[in-house]
Design a binder for these strands. Structure first.
Lengths: 220, 220
DNA sequence: CAGTCCATTGGTCGTATGGCCAATAAGCCC
DNA sequence: GGGCTTATTGGCCATACGACCAATGGACTG
């Protein structure tokens, strides 16, 4: 995710103490920092976003991170939003399939565990927002975006007659509640049973008036 | 929760540097420590269980906590198990009501938000178990106990004809998945809408073949 | 080419953590 | 009552964190 994996250091040895100083445009550097923090959040957890960790990943001194984010907490929040937004695209492909196929893709993506990093991040943020009000706000925002996307699919499906004429807002909230319920086990080492694996699909079919198995069959 | 809130210090001023040294039976002291840690976990979060915080709550020196828990992490795990187990009793009253009433009580207890501390603790543990394998194990154990309790109610209800003849294991897992989904919003400042508030009841009624509203009516 | 701005560095400070250890004293046993 | 076990203390250490600041030097402007 970081736009430049490691800043190319001029001659000298790899970690030469006299390593060259690379000056970048503020916007570019800021992007780099947020990207690095988002990457850390995804694969090590948000509490691992420290000035030192981010700086090291970028081959830069910790003070520089402080320069861009005087309050480290703000970086954490921004990193979450970025990581969350970028992962969302994997869930909701912007192609032109039918509503039921798009919903099936969404459900399937999760049953296969392809969203594990995002699920972990989500759980992480849900807990951490207990201590970081700004993160709570960012979480609500990202949640609203998800609900919006899902509601769009559901509305299309109801219009096309694929789904029963249920309240879109209720249905999307229920499905996302099922997603959260399933996701809350993401860090568990227990084997994933059929009930948990199929919960989102079951809830979706129940609340949308589909016959059991309809989503799985829609994958084609 | 701590059996003795603050150890009575002999004469002298409250925080006298020459405060008396109180020697307790190891088992008793150990209980005290776990209780204090559990209390901290419930109202401040498990990451706030530190040697110093626990020691201060007991009016004792941090080194004493280390004496009983050479690895602080073990205290965290034990504190979680204790807090979780003690809160469980509030959910599953051991009285002699009908299955549907017991289930209704369980659902109602949550809709009213009476289980907020436990929900927060649960979310806390679900996230933290990512980094603490022993906590993951404890979490699975507590989860199994919950499922056992709930399954007992469901089995009774099916036997009595109150619930449809569904698979008990599937039903209890689904209901607890709904609980987890709802609980994942416990730290959100967003107002709790009707959909989220009623999700557990809706899922329970759906999966147990009850008519909508049956649980709410069973409260009497 | 000289001057200015500010991105970047290197270093320091205060705080908090878990862990370790020797000294102390409380209470039990003989 | 004397001695022994060990619960408890007080102190120290290494580490990691966020924050702050003066000095440096890269790049742009005139």
């Amino acid at each position: 995710m970081p736009s430049s994996p490691v800043p190319s250091r001029p001659p000298g040895r790899a970690s030469s103490p006299t390593a060259g100083r690379i000056r970048k445009r503020p916007e570019e550097r800021r992007e780099e920092i947020v990207d690095a923090a988002a990457a850390i959040a995804l694969d090590a957890g948000m509490e691992r976003i420290t000035l030192r960790a981010v700086a090291e990943r970028l081959g830069v001194r910790p003070g520089l991170i402080t320069h861009y984010f005087p309050a480290a907490e703000d970086l954490v929040v921004e990193a979450f939003s970025r990581a969350s937004a970028s992962e969302r695209e994997l869930f909701f492909p912007a192609d032109e399939r039918t509503p039921i196929q798009r919903l099936a893709h969404f459900v399937d993506h999760m049953e296969r565990g392809l969203s594990a990093p995002l699920a972990r991040l989500w759980l992480n943020a849900q807990h951490l927002s207990r201590f970081v009000p700004a993160l709570d706000a960012a979480l609500q925002q990202q949640d609203a975006l998800d609900r919006e996307r899902l509601s769009g699919i559901l509305a299309d499906g109801i219009a096309s007659g694929d789904f029963a004429e249920v309240d879109v807002e209720t249905a999307s909230q229920r499905i996302l509640l099922a997603v959260d319920g399933t996701g809350s086990y993401i860090n568990s080492s227990a084997e994933l049973g059929a009930v948990r694996r199929g919960f989102v699909a079951d809830v979706a079919e129940w609340t949308l008036g589909l016959e059991p198995g309809a989503l799985r069959r829609a994958l084609g």
